[in-house]
Design a binder for these strands. Sequence first.
DNA 1: GCTCTGTTAGAAACTGGTTACTCACAGGCC
DNA 2: GGCCTGTGAGTAACCAGTTTCTAACAGAGC
Lengths: 359, 359
Amino acid sequence: MRAGTGERAEDREEPASQPGPAGRRGPRPAGAATISRVAEAAGVSRATVSRVMNGSTTVKPELAARVRAAAQALDYEPSVAARSLALGRTGTISLVVPDLANPLFQGVLRGLSQAAGKAGRQLLVAESNEDAEEETILAIEARRNSDGIVLASPRAPDERLRELSDRLAPFVLVYRDVPGLAAPSLSVDNVAGINDLVSHLTGLGHRHLAYLSGPDASSSHALRLAALRAAAAGTPGFTLTELPCGSMFDDGHAAAGPVLECGASAVVAFNDMVASGALTGLHELGVRVPGDVSVTGFDDIPFARYTTPPLTTVSIPKNELGRQAWDRLWALMNGESGGYNVRFQPRLLIRDSTGPAPS
Amino acid sequence: MRAGTGERAEDREEPASQPGPAGRRGPRPAGAATISRVAEAAGVSRATVSRVMNGSTTVKPELAARVRAAAQALDYEPSVAARSLALGRTGTISLVVPDLANPLFQGVLRGLSQAAGKAGRQLLVAESNEDAEEETILAIEARRNSDGIVLASPRAPDERLRELSDRLAPFVLVYRDVPGLAAPSLSVDNVAGINDLVSHLTGLGHRHLAYLSGPDASSSHALRLAALRAAAAGTPGFTLTELPCGSMFDDGHAAAGPVLECGASAVVAFNDMVASGALTGLHELGVRVPGDVSVTGFDDIPFARYTTPPLTTVSIPKNELGRQAWDRLWALMNGESGGYNVRFQPRLLIRDSTGPAPS
DNA sequence: GCTCTGTTAGAAACTGGTTACTCACAGGCC
DNA sequence: GGCCTGTGAGTAACCAGTTTCTAACAGAGC
């Protein structure tokens, strides 16, 4: 059943460009105008078009007007890719965070987004899903697509970050301080925050604290825990109970039972989400806050002031971290030094979830 | 907003003094390896290196190994810009939202980020600061830097979006449905959500509702208000009081007084943030919820379940919107159709902030 | 032994901008 | 009038990849 002889020859003709099926092959976004077309339409060279588009003053007003008219008429938009290639920069910076659902990182995201936006820069965002390995892989990938990177990496080992700082530069680290890192870091003084919390609580007569632990791998958690242990060790007659927990609402909610069992009169939660979960859990168990138990958070998320009762917590300048991260990155991108590392001092916000220890 | 509030410089050693003033002039990111250097080192042509890097099978294994070794030795990383130019695509997509502080958009951001990440695509994010004009300007700008865009634009006029759909394509609209738009839209059935809420409340005997209005320009607000008015008009003996409010915690908090004055037995808040602000405000005024007044929200933000009392609200699939937006965009980028518009049906979540109307 | 065919890899032409260099021309000065 | 200078615009060489086209070569078939 071979039909050999009757082969149709029709499809041999010039496969001419078919505007139909969307760009399977060519790099042709459409009939998009290029600088050459504009140049041709305006009767000038590509160089002149480029000059006009970039506001160079060395073009006669009359010619410039002609070029602009041609560009307008053709709906010309310069190719970002070509521009990046020629200039060696993309006009984009990156932010990599572990978890976009966490208000802590949302704050940095906003601050950075606004600062970068004001400077006409685009922002690339990647989420590492709380995975130490991902944090660095995504950072490298994101950095390749941009001119600089802001990284929140609570899990990657110090050493790994030091190794990477070259490849990532210009590079700013946030919410963490890695000794010997060749990049500026913007961090929060966790120890000071915990100490403020502890003195507030001991001042109210509390002698038995429960700490609702954050995720094991979190560097903030490690610092807060260490500060807590140090405080406990330095205060005679003081008991610290460490309760495994987590970083989300549900974790705190689930920890209410254990808190009650351990007999602490105050709970220091890893963060505000945990604290507010605990608040709800305790409420369900009929425990009065702060009558029976005091509760504190950390971070001062927007919501912390609307829990019942409003949460005593430690406030950290989330947006400010983002804004300053931009400033640092900008400086680095201009070949300046990134300046000194900064450790933001948190501020204790006493609201209504803490009160005198029951006698 | 002083940057200075509690920051302390650490005197660490000079961070990262780059080799010389960074790229003031040249497009030279450093001594970065290019494809030509790799080719030279491996003793092959650039074409061959390109083939190896892209996994083409038409290169002899032995040669390929040599190329890979050379690339490794030189720390070669292909230039994203050059690649984008040659291929005509960037490997990046964009998301533009009005407000990154809003959990509604955070949900889409996460869903989209994860879906795009899984497909190896980068995500560009821009925030339009609740400004109708910005929404479209940023959208165009973001689109130029990427291969497609997901846009949440509650404020731009319908007409403006229709005009733009060509320039933005591939383009997916979320949280909104614009008649005649040449792009798929993923929206939420606001009317159904409001109706669910209203029947729930009338079923509990409520006859006088207060609506805490969202921002005037918000299209969601307009739809919710219209649905509410329609419901009121269709139910004899039913009163609707519209109270100007906003979209944030504080707005709801401030609205507690007016709610009390107007004598409504139930309040329908524009969203969960407003509702939870109102909850706190009412609590402060000694009003019992739901004993004296019932309160409902909209959106089901993560926090809604941890208010006191937990908030009755309407749940919408925020992350799912982001995921599906990716699917649509992906289809469009491959020249397929974007499929039908989808209107997600919200789900009523009855928690403890609503109860029988007081008699 | 010669042609045909299939596989590999190189040459060169793209992608769309920017910019150093050059040159033509006009005006000022001697 | 000739020379010098400054301005405006074009030429062409980049930027760093991808891809089409072509050619060399080896093995199969006659």
